[in-house]
């Protein structure tokens, strides 16, 4: 391993932060990791935008709105290696289960016709990102280099993947580490 620290950025798009929590399950191994890794944009830091020289981007969650698209593009532009982390990033996951209901029905149910809705109105503040018709996995919007399956991927998956990369090995997950659930 070289002396220069590897820059890692992370983000959660249409996800539940479960993958990030699982990442934190690395526990004491995190200490070892930060000897080689420096975190850039990430909920773990407070950096708001990726530096232009990020090495690895870890992305949790699928793409459900216009902001997700912008953030994903920012990551793609600034990270040498982009990794789809977890079921939602890989196939849309739980949020994509809305894909078989039309967006119009979804919004009407949530903001207009649903039980207990007051001041029924579909939000239209220009500050709010608009929803896409369907939730898409990352690889349908930008090029993705690696996939870490799991809901969430276990800390061991992150560990194996990152240590492989840091050691200059082609990352590979053995059987016990490949899980879709």
């Amino acid at each position: 391993m070289t002396n220069k620290k590897v820059k890692v950025a992370t983000v959660s798009l249409a996800g539940c932060f479960g993958c990030h929590m699982s990442f934190l399950d690395l526990d004491e191994r995190l200490v070892e990791l930060v000897e080689h890794v420096e975190f850039d944009r990430s909920p773990l830091t407070d950096i708001e935008h990726c530096s232009s020289d990020c090495d690895i981007g870890l992305i949790e969650g699928g793409v459900c709105n216009s902001e997700n698209v912008h953030v994903l593009r920012e990551f793609r532009k600034n990270c040498k290696i982009l990794v789809a982390v977890g079921a939602c990033a890989i196939n849309g996951g739980l949020p994509a289960m809305r894909n078989h209901i039309s967006l119009e029905d979804c919004l009407n149910e949530a903001y207009r016709d649903g039980i207990g809705v007051e001041n029924a109105q579909i939000p239209n503040d220009v500050e709010l990102p608009l929803l896409l018709d369907k939730v898409h996995p990352l690889h349908e919007v930008v090029k993705i280099d690696y996939f870490l399956p799991g809901c969430p991927p276990s800390a061991d998956v992150f560990w194996k993947f990152l240590t492989d990369l840091l050691a200059g090995r082609e990352p590979s997950l053995n059987y016990e580490l490949v899980h879709f659930d």
Partner: peptide, 22 residues
């Protein structure tokens, strides 16, 4: 289906999804 995918080391779905309404 899942187990065959594990066996073959599949980590992603590679192709664009149809997202058909079923």
């Amino acid at each position: 289906l899942q187990a065959v995918a594990y066996h073959l080391g599949m980590t992603d779905n590679h192709f664009p999804h149809f997202f058909e309404n079923r």
